[in-house]
Amino acid sequence: MSVLILAEQKKGKLVKASLGVMNIGATIASKMGTDYNVLLIGEGAKDAAAAAVNSGAGKVFVAEGDKVATYMDELWADITLDVANTAGATVVLGLATTQGKAVMPRVAAKLDAGMASEITGVTDDLHFIRPVYAGNLNAEVEITTEKKVATVRGTAFEPIAEGAAAAIEDVAIAADPAGYNKAFVKLEETVSDRPPLTEAAVVVSGGRGLKAAENYKIVEELADLLGGAVGATRATVDAGWIHNDYQVGQTGKIVAPDLYIAVGLSGAIQHLAGMKDSKVIVAINKDEEAPIFSVADYGLVADLFEVVPDLVQKVKAAKQG
């Protein structure tokens, strides 16, 4: 009996949300009276392990080498399954990223375990709390199988506090990447100097009110001034104004920064689902009836093309002053 966390890394850097999953993993382990282990897979896993090791975990398993040079859902799932079985894991947790969400249901299926998606809490009897209906309701669910699998919402838990150093253990990979009837073709990465949307302390999102792709520079300027990330709505991604990676919402990314500035977006149910847990919300919209104002701490009813450039100037002045 133990808890296993499939953490994530990119090019040797631990994905920060992994630490939040380790936090809830450690909590669950202590409720169960057992310990928790961490698994990192792929090129750079060993480097990333350094950031996960001083965490009170039992072990940090590392699966590296030629076999995992290229990412594949099936392969990651099978490695996780093998480690879960050898470590005697009864609870397996992953991140609620596109990777974790693609991998963990496979792990659940093969463990014959029930799975809860995007959990935001856990009760003493190990029931999970998770938002449903675009976050309009919270469900408490019981996984009735002995083994339990979940993905964990990145905004829900603080990073785990520093703890005793874990032992790092190499994993021998049994799976054959060529055996999955699928092949990698290419990866087009979005490049940005801004902080990742899900990790930024400030997010400035622009909606259809921006009118055209080139007007994203208006929100970008504000985001850069505040050291923040840029976000978007489904409408602007669909329109091709900005990459899908920036969609905030029920079916995009869930964010909860210290400051969320919503510019020219209406605040549809699906958008609110992705940002309503932000600490401070500012809404700028020319329509005073826009639903975004119902969740905003500060609302400004105005034309964004007039006030956002002005806001940039005044924040600049205040910063220098």
Binding site: N136, N138, E140, E142, I143
Partner: peptide, 15 residues
């Protein structure tokens, strides 16, 4: 494998 125990409305954010 997953049983719903309860549904609750999260606290509404105030304007």
């Amino acid at each position: 494998k997953v049983k719903l125990i309860s549904l609750t409305a999260p606290p509404e954010r105030q304007a």
